[in-house]
Amino acid sequence: MTDPAERRASEDLDARIAAAKARHAPQARQVAASALARGTRYAAEIAVATVVGFGLGWFLDRQLGTGPWLAILFLMLGVAAGFRNLLRAVEQETRAVEAEGRAELAAASGPERKAKGGPAGSPGAE
């Protein structure tokens, strides 16, 4: 049973292999399949957050006797919470795509820079 921390040493090689693989961009079908799998999760989270928000508001309404207003307010907040989760995931994904783009650029221009003796593999130096 290999310790994950011990495997870090070989990760440098793994990163280079990953960069080489990234040059062959993933197929459209793989992109669509991953969006389907992750998107379903976030869609379910939006629906559940809405229901939880409504339940919370309904419970508070019953305790405080404030008509349907808190239920409506918390329903909206629940929708907002679900969409916030989704937007956070989308932002994260955008950053990942940007990082991949930079890694690809660095991998493409890396060997020449090393030959010139410049700072090897510092992304965004140009």
């Binding site: 969006a35 379903t40 869609a43 939006i46 969409f83 989308v90 994904e93 955008t94 795509v97």
Partner: peptide, 10 residues
């Protein structure tokens, strides 16, 4: 990828 994820999830 991010745009596809967003559109599909919504």
């Amino acid at each position: 990828r991010p745009n596809l994820l967003f559109g599909f999830a919504v």
